[in-house]
Amino acid sequence: MEEDLPEAPIATTPSDVNHTASWRTFRPVIDLKLCTKCNVCWKFCPDDAIAFDGVGFPVIRLDYCKGCAICAEECKPKAITMVKED
């Protein structure tokens, strides 16, 4: 509705209301036994899709992960595997 729009085209809703999970064909799965908590996966994620749990292990935010697999590629101990989505 026109009445609901601001007078000028100003966007103010943070983009994380948009979920991009459906873009994904493969999802990263982290083997915590191999993870060294080096944060490389977090550092190189273009989608801000990696958070940390209470003890510092990375957690994939699957609502936003697009499955680019940079994290798996850059993970030195190879703790991340890309698994095909159903």
Binding site: P14, S15, D16, V17, N18, H19, T20, W23, P46, D47, D48, A49, R61, D63, Y64, K66, G67, C68, A69, I70
Partner: peptide, 13 residues
């Protein structure tokens, strides 16, 4: 923020 429209693996992002 997350939820942006970049292609997967985008360097510009």
């Amino acid at each position: 923020r997350s939820g942006h429209s970049a292609c997967p693996g985008c360097g510009a992002t």
